[in-house]
């Protein structure tokens, strides 16, 4: 079973992409959970969301304390939140940043795999403006999902709510994130 923790700020869509990540993995025949941590629900407040992904039925309902992947949607949280708390030393830290992986290592003291991508620039270039979808792409890549499955799920989930133009832009953003993180895999 893989456990994933998302760090974002209220309104950035971390909870939404954690749900889409669950659905991507469901498409691949996995068992999944996605749940946010509920506190004060204010725009801009630090929020955390979680995923569990397993081959078999997931029976555990308690919180995630030792994730194998941590995804930081908002770089500023590296300073205000303990984003690497409980993260396995052989785990993966994915950060939306313009900094290099080495710079992030210095800032976090994390010894495992660090993946950096500039999700804001990817989103801006795609024309969506929100970093959560590129980070979803990165998460899908890190977890070993096929890009096609991730695209299918984004089409399915967001297609009903977005214009076809905006949906295509989101798919570009998704691919951008996926490509940036490709090649790193997390073991079980």
């Amino acid at each position: 079973m893989k456990e994933i923790r998302w760090h974002g700020r209220g309104g950035q869509g971390a909870k939404t992409v954690s749900q889409i990540l669950a659905q991507i993995n469901l498409r691949e025949g996995k068992h999944v959970q996605s749940f946010p941590e509920y506190g004060p629900e204010r725009s801009g407040a630090p929020v955390r969301a979680f995923n569990r992904i397993a081959e078999g039925e997931i029976r555990i309902h308690s919180g995630v304390y030792e994730p194998s992947v941590v995804i930081v949607v908002d770089e500023s949280l590296l300073d205000s939140e303990n984003t690497t708390e409980g993260l396995a030393s052989d785990g993966v830290l994915v950060v939306n940043t313009k900094c290099s992986a080495e710079e992030i290592r210095d800032r976090t003291d994390f010894g495992g795999t660090i993946i950096v991508l500039d999700a804001i620039t990817i989103a801006d270039e795609a024309g969506t403006g929100f970093p959560n979808i590129p980070m979803l792409g990165a998460a899908a890549a890190v977890l070993g999902s096929a890009l096609e499955t991730a695209e299918e799920e984004v089409r399915h989930t967001m297609g009903a709510k977005l214009s076809s133009d905006m949906l295509e832009k989101n798919l570009v953003a998704l691919r951008g994130g996926y490509e940036a993180a490709k090649g790193v895999r997390v073991g079980r």
Binding site: Q19, A22, L26, H31, V32, Q33, S34, F35, P36, Y38, I58, H61
Partner: peptide, 12 residues
């Protein structure tokens, strides 16, 4: 059903 733990978490 347990509040939040079951109501708000996405499950299969």
């Amino acid at each position: 059903l347990d509040g939040f733990t079951l109501t708000h978490s996405v499950q299969v």
